[in-house]
Design a binder for these strands. Structure first.
Lengths: 197, 197
DNA sequence: GAATTTAACGAACGGTCGCTCTATTTTTAA
DNA sequence: TTAAAAATAGAGCGACCGTTCGTTAAATTC
């Protein structure tokens, strides 16, 4: 890895940290440079514009999410085992994010939901991909016979997504300790209702 | 209503509109003044600080939410009728927000979830109150005998909250047309599972 | 080790930020 | 109608924004 690539990676890591606290818009090049002991223009040169920096940070967050949540769960056997592993890793990701700061993608979803542009596009694309992965995981549990064939995988994924959002919300804003328990019970209810009899 | 109160109300309405698009932090006094045809200092004088403006905007949003969602639903008879009315009004609120801009409180929840201060406090307090109203509505459906006595009202409220979050997310970021349908189905599943047999 | 590409700096740009202060106008009350 | 009070304007503060530019220092290649 060349010197430039090293620096870029270091900037990206720090920027991700900042953006998790302050949002992708609240992220500023000056503060970022100061935190890294670099000059503003030095940081700037690596990305060319703030929007490119935001895009890079978002992609970094998305990759980390996939690496921490989706990829390891794929090691589990298809079916409910994988679905449960996926969801538990998801909850762990959301609960174990380094303080301070929450999940960048969830925050960005609200920050950019009505700000057209490449950032919003990348964000929406990532969300769609994640939802598709969720749906696929559920569908595999149907195929394996653990869930009834008439189960609506998209509806299931929608509800599961909501459970994760609520857990994140309760934990971070309300400091609600039972959020994880609530979320796991919600998953089990989803499974129970769709379970093959 | 005195002249000052009139102006203040006009500022608040415009500020709420701006904050729904740009977030409470993205809201700026200069742009707000320009939009209203007032001077920056004229707008500023009504609130004394940006934080006070943010607080006032947040309270305004909370009051409007209560007036549009909770209060009318209280006219329905206690039980499932009121619960369904409440949820449907909630979905309508979220779907019919004037474009552009989403729900200020949901956005602020992510913007301020790790920014201690009065804004965060007011936000969390409002969320707790809303959750309590939800829980109470569910509990009344238990008391009326429509839901089983062993129903966990807090778990129910948690899941219902997640459904609303997911619906808002799918509608606004992904432009998913079936979000309302998904949400209503999720509510019916919640009810069916808790229904007295 | 020299040549050349790459990385980073530092100063400066026009703009906007929240905010302060002083004036002036407008509204309200006596 | 006049005096007090409230509301708004306007200029300006220091700080920071993203960005540009020319230059220097460092890393890489030959």
């Amino acid at each position: 890895m060349s010197k430039g690539e090293q620096t870029r990676a270091a900037i990206l890591a720090a920027a991700l940290d900042m953006a998790r606290q302050l949002g992708l818009e609240g992220l500023t090049i000056g503060t970022l440079a100061e935190r890294l002991g670099l000059s503003k223009s030095g940081v700037f040169a690596h990305f060319g514009s703030k929007e490119e920096l935001q895009l890079a940070v978002l992609r970094e967050a998305q990759e980390r999410f996939v690496a921490a949540v989706l990829r390891p769960a794929l090691a589990e056997p298809r079916g409910l085992a994988r679905l449960r592993a996926l969801f538990e890793r998801w909850l762990a990701w959301s609960a174990n994010l380094p303080e301070p700061g929450g999940c960048l993608m969830m925050a960005a979803a609200y920050e950019f939901d009505d700000r057209p542009g490449p950032v919003r596009d990348a964000l929406a694309e990532g969300q769609r991909a994640w939802r598709a992965s969720l749906t696929r995981t559920i569908r595999l549990a149907i195929d394996s016979g653990e869930l009834r064939p008439d189960t609506d995988a998209e509806q299931f994924a929608f509800e599961l997504f909501g459970v994760a959002l609520a857990a994140h919300h309760d934990t971070r804003l309300l400091g609600e300790a039972r959020a994880r328990e609530h979320a796991l019970r919600a998953l089990e209810r989803l499974i129970a209702d769709a379970r093959a009899t």
